[in-house]
Design a protein around this nucleic acid. Structure first.
Lengths: 115, 115
DNA sequence: CGATATACTTCATCTGTCAATGTATTTCTT
DNA sequence: AAGAAATACATTGACAGATGAAGTATATCG
């Protein structure tokens, strides 16, 4: 994991919501997908992940249910709510803005004497 | 300020270092520049700003000195050190990586049955 | 003379992250 | 069959960065 996590702070919920926009899922699977999508460059710490689920359930963005008792360890599935979808949209727009802001703030300006 | 600050958490130092890469500066001026560069969309809270100076001085990335006693309130100027320049470079690269990671993580994938 | 802008400082509090630890089941290896 | 590894979730205490609030001080403008 090459990216220091503090930089991604605040994006945890959005990353999870993005996956729940596609389909219901559970913690372990979501984290495997994060690894896959980033080619192993990033993954959530377990505590971070499950803390986020709690937080988002409380906020009403996701709901939870236990998976059917099949083979393997029991899974707690999460589904995104309409409020969650709205929140995802808002945060996605925010990300685009943030990206532009930071691109502007992390670039050195030319020294314009005429300015 | 339209961007929720938690999203920029962890970037505070990098934003300040960027400005010190150009020239020595002081808190108030740096913050005005942030406002200018973001067209008023963002500015630091004072406590955030001065906490960051303390932190970076301690880390050896910047040094401080009092400005000449001219007109107006006294100013505490900051200069970036070589270690600070190295750190800036590292963080700038990190930002580029982060941007790509988040672009990947906040995008919904197509449902490829063939995948 | 009072308001506003400039300029810096400290402290208590809040929030998200995470190391550590624990529980439980299944599958793979030897 | 025993032991290791993978799957899967949960909780707790500690830590670090951000910030509201309050304070200090000087200069300018009406």
């Amino acid at each position: 994991m090459s990216i220091s996590a503090d930089i991604l702070r605040g994006h945890t919920d959005t990353i999870i919501l993005t996956q729940l926009m596609e389909k219901d899922s559970y913690g372990y699977e979501i984290n495997k997908n994060v690894q896959k999508r980033t080619q192993g460059q990033y993954e959530f710490k377990e505590a971070t992940l499950y803390t986020a689920f709690k937080r988002m359930e409380k906020s009403g963005w996701i709901t939870a249910y236990w998976g059917e008792d099949g083979p393997g360890a029991r899974r707690r599935y999460y589904a995104i709510t309409q409020a969650g979808k709205d929140e995802w949209k808002r945060r996605n727009e925010e990300w685009r803005e943030t990206r532009e802001l930071l691109d502007a703030l992390l670039t050195m300006e030319e020294n314009n004497e005429s300015d």
